[in-house]
């Protein structure tokens, strides 16, 4: 699984961090998403898919 994020679209909702803390973080200065792990392990796939589904700004893309 390959993950990309679009920091320009991100509205800093934090939903991805709640869903998959090991994969997503937020910048200190404005809460915008930071991708910690662009190729998460298989056991995290479900959480990452959930993060992409709840992201209100459609800022998370997944490629299998």
């Amino acid at each position: 699984m390959k993950v990309t994020v679009d920091q320009d679209r991100c509205v800093a909702s934090g939903q991805c961090v709640v869903a998959a803390m090991e994969v997503f973080d937020q910048r200190d200065e404005d809460g915008v998403v930071v991708l910690l792990d662009p190729e998460p392990r298989a056991e995290r796939a479900e959480d990452v898919r959930h993060a992409a589904a709840v992201c209100p700004a459609l800022a998370i893309a997944i490629e299998d």
Binding site: A12, G14, V17, V18, Q26, D30
Partner: peptide, 17 residues
Amino acid sequence: HARLRRMVTAPFAIKRV
């Protein structure tokens, strides 16, 4: 909207909360 919202997003980040 984005210009103004981003001025107040930091305190609502998950770690800060």
